[in-house]
């Protein structure tokens, strides 16, 4: 009996015994070579970009230098300069950092709101769900790009946070819809009913009982959203409605290519930024897709 007990205790010490969704997802990523490489590369880019941007002097980079306009790549300027004589490489680093930051921020804001919205609609169901879904339908049919641009152009105190909130305000519907349909299924399960009979409040049941059970879906969706949001941000910056020009984004560099001269003859200004956006979005997507396959498979198994 005693032997048995120590045995049990040992098992309890072993953390891998717990069915944590995070750990399972992590295992799946390690198994999927493409996703693993993507994740490593992504981490490297992130660390590199944030590290260098920390050392770089942003004012130095965005200062106009009329003696070095449109320099092709050279030893002094690794990737040349733009029409204001500003170093492209430095802008690329800072732009990547800014794009990543805003991607994370928008994903977080829209994610938190969308998850809460979806959980509440799905958990309560009935009239609540119906009313909330009509609101969601309305937001979903709005012309997203245009409304964001209009808002961006009329907001007086325009900051990174304001920009993120505007983007998130028109971008939470996808995840909300997904979470809602999952919550609708989940709330029928007995453990939710049990919590009700045990006197647990609705808020606690929603966020402490149901939410942990759909955490893998949340992680997968948030990852895929991150890729999309990086793309959307750079698109808006490309049109000139992301950051102001003094805060470079990857989209800002691409927007120089709307000048036919730049597009045709000065590839060093826009091609690296284009490649970087593509690579980052693909990598994030690889990770997200691997996670999605993992959760799908788990659902199929039981």
């Amino acid at each position: 009996m005693e032997v048995n007990n120590t045995n049990l205790a040992n098992q309890i010490q072993d953390p891998t015994k717990s069915p944590s969704g995070l750990k399972i997802l992590w295992k799946e990523i390690v198994r999927d070579k493409l996703a693993l490489v993507s994740l490593i590369l992504l981490t490297l880019i992130t660390v590199f970009v944030y590290g260098i941007a920390f050392v770089l002097d942003q004012d130095e980079i965005v200062r106009v230098d009329l003696f070095a306009i449109h320099e092709p790549p050279s030893e002094e300027f690794i990737l040349g300069t733009d029409y204001g004589g500003r170093d492209i490489f430095g802008q690329l680093i800072i732009g990547t950092r800014n794009s990543l930051s805003i991607g994370f921020l928008v994903t977080a804001i829209s994610g938190i709101f969308g998850i809460a919205f979806g959980l509440i609609a799905g958990y309560f169901g009935g009239y609540t769900d119906n009313a909330m879904m009509r609101v969601l339908d309305f937001f979903q049919v709005l012309p997203f790009t245009m409304l964001v641009i209009v808002f961006v152009s009329i907001v007086p105190n325009y900051t990174i946070l304001a920009f993120s909130i505007i983007m998130a305000a028109f971008n939470w519907m996808g995840i909300a819809r997904l979470i809602r349909s999952k919550a609708l299924q989940e709330k029928e399960l007995d453990y939710v009913q049990a919590s009700k009979t045990l006197g647990t409040s609705h808020t606690k049941i929603i966020f402490r009982e149901v939410m942990p059970n759909i955490s893998s879906l949340i992680i997968v969706t948030m990852t895929l959203n991150l890729a999309a949001n990086i793309g959307i941000e750079s698109g808006l910056s490309f049109l000139g409605f992301g950051f102001p020009e003094s805060t470079p984004s990857l989209g800002t560099l691409l927007s120089y290519a709307t000048n036919p001269q730049t597009l045709e003859y000065r590839w060093w200004i826009w091609v690296p930024a284009a490649i970087l956006i593509l690579v980052m979005m693909l990598m994030v997507r690889n990770v997200g897709e691997a996670l999605r396959r993992a959760t799908d498979a788990r659902q199929r198994r039981g």
């Binding site: 890729a227 793309g231 045709e264 979005m281």
Partner: peptide, 22 residues
């Protein structure tokens, strides 16, 4: 389709213009 999903339209448009236009 996988790559197409991850490609923002504006980058693809620029590349198309560059290649087929210029």
């Amino acid at each position: 389709t996988y790559i197409g999903f991850a490609t923002p339209l504006f980058i693809f448009g620029l590349v198309m213009l560059w290649v087929f236009g210029y």
